[in-house]
Design a protein around this nucleic acid. Structure first.
Lengths: 208, 208, 208, 208
DNA sequence: GATGAATGAGGGTTCATTCAT
DNA sequence: GATGAATGAACCCTCATTCAT
């Protein structure tokens, strides 16, 4: 009994293989043949399930978005003390990027293509509004408690939290080269984590 | 008399066209034919001057690195008051990324390819050591004057300065979509500039 | 219904076309487009079945080796009287080269490339050991019967049998020119056949 | 003072480089750029002196023909005892091919192209008629002296002398592979030389 | 006699996709 | 649901040759 005859799993295997391939080579550099081979599926099946290469890319992207947002939900930021909640989010974001580098390259690819896949995806948009809500609530609670400056825009803050880690990790090859350091050495990674936490927490603090 | 017989300009036209093409489509998506056409040169000339597509890509990358580092030098950070110097660098970096989006996509491409072009380029490395030196000197002066925390790593700080703008601009398509805002609206851009300046200057301040 | 849907025949048509093309123009001069066209196949199919141009060349070469060795087997040298067996082999070899000039140019090409395709082909090697065995047995039988000199090396002898015809036919254009004779005229061919037979049979004879 | 300004030497360097290149890669595989580079000459000069690639190939071929025929003349076959003369020619031919493998590949290339360069070369033809004359005279003297069979065709004999060595050396790569022996080992070469001498001398002997 | 720059046609190969079964 | 065979456009690159100086 070969691979066939379990549609759900076939679809999943294809999607996994595609995610890896797109992450590694980008949308343009990804090869449909390699995806099919890695998935142990017939090439025709990619088209059967996902329409075409772009459809497959969008599915991979949606999958990864869903995954990170889902993981974020389990942080339970709503219940925690605002400062703790924020620190937890910062740590989570850094660790997630570190452990899921494929997410970064997927996003880079999508932006190289001016977001043309994500543009028409309702699923992607729907995934995010609750998240902004949650972070906004944390900031309001913190402000009310006198810990945080009032009026902080959750979107600006989130882009900082993400950007501080994203740029470091996504551009690690060029940065390691131009600064003559191995940015992926364990010690360097720990230093970056500390630096980010400090920077972010400092930035929301009430001014002295 | 067609285009020919001015090697310097032919080379430059090709390099310009290549930079645009690589910036727009990435290394894999760039088309050698399009570059030649846009440069008004014979396709063969690309190979004559740059060896192959990768050689051309590296040349484009080196060109853009040289350009930004050169512009940075004209900031004359050495002379200025530390706080002013830092603010100037933050503003410059943001504005440079904003006005030269091709630099961002070029770097993304290079990192997608694990930095394999930059790795063997002495030119790229040599361009950067003086810059780190300069920023380090600013930080030391600021610390001595009691304005900045002592012991700040110039590399960590620079990655933050860059990352805060880079991520916002490089990922503007996906971020605009997931947050349901046009991140490129003038007002949004101005807000981001303010946010970055505040975050960075806050992060170096002596603790109150 | 076009050509498709008979993989065996498609493959065979490509191999035939390739053999002709390689024979006529050599490995370097052969054109993949022409092969595809002559085979009535899509160019992509050459790569589907044979990997690349070199793979196709090796397949053509192996095919021709198999063909001649196969034809040789039907001479049934084992049963015949040694002198008859040898004469039969000499005649066969000459006639085969005459009727299959593509075999000669194929071999020349392979040797121009220092045997790099054949080197890694088990199939080619396996085809030949039985043949040397057979010829060796004929020589031993002839020696025992007092017809042939003892101790003749079958490899040396075979290279002579082949070389006497090969050089004449393979170099017929230059030889015709420098000797001012049409070496392919029927009378000339017959004379060469006689000459070779005499030379070879003489060379194995017991010394008087 | 670069290479220039000595037309004779420039021409000679180009011709040498071309001979090596054609010998190594064949006519089709030879690269005009490589020839120019190896000759330390500007590419344009090849065209200035030899017209085009084919003209250069013909010049190389003529050069090698002149070389071997010239060397042959120094054997002074006319004066020697017929048997000695023949043995000397056989040895010379084998050694020449062994020491000048480029001659073999040049001839193979020309024959792959159906002798189209040599066809229109008077020089090539003129070089050879004296040689056939000389060999014919040796055979007549030998026949008159009762050593050789009468009526031997000098062209047939010469093709045998050449072919016995040519095939062995020109096809050494394929033959080594199919017979599982290194045909270029010193011992193997010596054995072949003996075998050829014996075969040829036997073939002209008066029948016992 | 000599040079570096330029040309256009075509080289082998690979691509995403679809057909027939 | 699944398969191997087939397609045509286009990919990067290289060729022998010629132009302007």
């Amino acid at each position: 009994m070969k691979n066939g005859r379990d549609p759900e799993r076939t679809r999943a295997r294809i999607l996994d293989a595609a995610t890896q391939e797109f992450a590694r080579y980008g949308l343009g550099g990804a090869r449909v043949d390699r995806i099919a081979e890695r998935a142990g599926a017939n090439k025709r099946m990619l088209y059967y399930y996902f329409g075409d290469k772009d459809g497959l890319f969008l599915a991979a992207l949606e999958g990864r978005y869903a995954h990170i947002r889902n993981a974020e939900r389990s942080l339970e930021l709503e219940q925690a003390d605002p400062r703790t909640a924020l620190r937890r989010l910062v740590e989570f974001t850094w660790n997630y990027y570190l452990e899921h580098p494929e997410f970064l390259t997927l996003l880079n690819s999508e932006n190289l293509h001016k977001g043309r896949h994500v543009r028409s995806s309702r699923r992607v948009r729907d995934l995010h509004s609750p998240f902004v809500e949650t972070l906004g609530a944390v900031l309001r609670r913190g402000a009310k408690a006198g810990m945080f400056r009032p009026g902080i825009d959750p979107v600006q803050l989130y882009i900082s939290i993400a950007g501080e880690g994203y740029f470091y990790l996504s551009n690690r090859y060029t940065l390691s080269r131009i600064f003559g350091r191995d940015l992926m050495a364990p010690r360097a990674l720990a230093a970056r984590a500390r630096h980010i936490k400090q920077t972010i927490l400092n930035s929301v603090r009430r001014q002295g």
